[in-house]
Design a protein around this nucleic acid. Sequence first.
DNA 1: AAATGATTTAAGCAAATGTTTAAATTATAT
DNA 2: ATATAATTTAAACATTTGCTTAAATCATTT
Lengths: 221, 221
Amino acid sequence: MMKCASSTEEKIKDAARKVFLEKGFEGATTRDIAKEAGLNCALMNYYFRSKEKLFATVFEEMLQLFFQGMTTVLHKPISLKEKLVELIEHDFQTFKSNPSLCIFILNELHRAPDHLVNIIQAAKTQAALLFEQQLKEAIDQGIVRPVNTHHVLSLLLSNTQFIFLGKALTMNTWQMNEDDFNTYAEDHKQLITQMIVNFLFIADPEIELRQHGSESAVLSH
Amino acid sequence: MMKCASSTEEKIKDAARKVFLEKGFEGATTRDIAKEAGLNCALMNYYFRSKEKLFATVFEEMLQLFFQGMTTVLHKPISLKEKLVELIEHDFQTFKSNPSLCIFILNELHRAPDHLVNIIQAAKTQAALLFEQQLKEAIDQGIVRPVNTHHVLSLLLSNTQFIFLGKALTMNTWQMNEDDFNTYAEDHKQLITQMIVNFLFIADPEIELRQHGSESAVLSH
DNA sequence: AAATGATTTAAGCAAATGTTTAAATTATAT
DNA sequence: ATATAATTTAAACATTTGCTTAAATCATTT
């Protein structure tokens, strides 16, 4: 009864993912996807009912993958500071291995806000609240500057996303090749990690001086 | 010989700007634009030769406007710190009054990198070098942490853009109305200004304690 | 092997798209 | 006023689009 359904289905999804990421929803055509998959274009509607449905499937899977990584980090039994560092690391890794992902997600957010909002709402309850609680505790303990969860998440996401959003521009403007860019991205990751941690965590001079040496030395006159 | 060319031309550009901003290049149709302008759709090709050319015109004008503001700030005879603050203020203002502008620009960067790159290259030589020089001087004087110009510009742009890129998501996720969002954006502006300035400028305890009171107080144990 | 149901294909449909055409209208110069 | 050139319009053109159809192919069951 079944020949190799899952195989073709996967081929279509793979092709769709690639083409949608590259050209966006409107920019991609069903024939583009079929060609990329090396399949008849009617198959697209046989397995998924429409371009819209195929897109939604691919999009949700991709977002799922992204959130899964974040959720894993958020659930780890580690300190808030370690969590922040790992979240930044995770985002950098994700977007580095797939630079089109940011603009793809942001585009969908602009095209059909409700779609993304619904997915986020579902994922939110899982682990974000845990993070929020941990942040609040740290604030209560006077370890962290009093700041809204939302602001913190914005800081993380904006600083990790942007570098990859502007990758083409950066490489061109500053005459970089792929290696140069990776070096630059790595530097920037260190920089924003330091900046965000320094900003959020209220420095305990005794400890901070040993941990961050040069950065904090200047504050100890 | 001329009836009211410039008037119709402007009407088309206004309509195109609006529709392109809303739906992007592929998402917008020539008929959408004609309808928005209340004009026959053949006029679009009479004044601009093609959809692509119309888009390029509108896009370049919009980018010009954005850079003009930045250039003005960069040319002001003020300190580096004041410049940073004003740049952040300018970007926030620009994107606040036109939230679609970020995604629009980033989209074009993804769709046709060369287009944007050429424009930027032309604008770059004007005022950015001036900023770079001022930054380097400050670093030499030990006022500012040794950091690349590019990193600084990334910090500015990423933190100002992101909040507006994710506006729809933010408002929905955190149940905000337009006023709430504006308040949040204003808060975030203050926060990132403080964070970036604190990070870049090497604090002179004597002065900093008076300027930033609560933030730096903790560092003075 | 024959029958059945799942999968794949080629062909094409209806609508939409960017663009052109040729005629109609309007403004301007003589 | 009339001729001329600029502007505007309705209609249509050729492609491209998402999607459907109906026949062909393949795998599985009996």
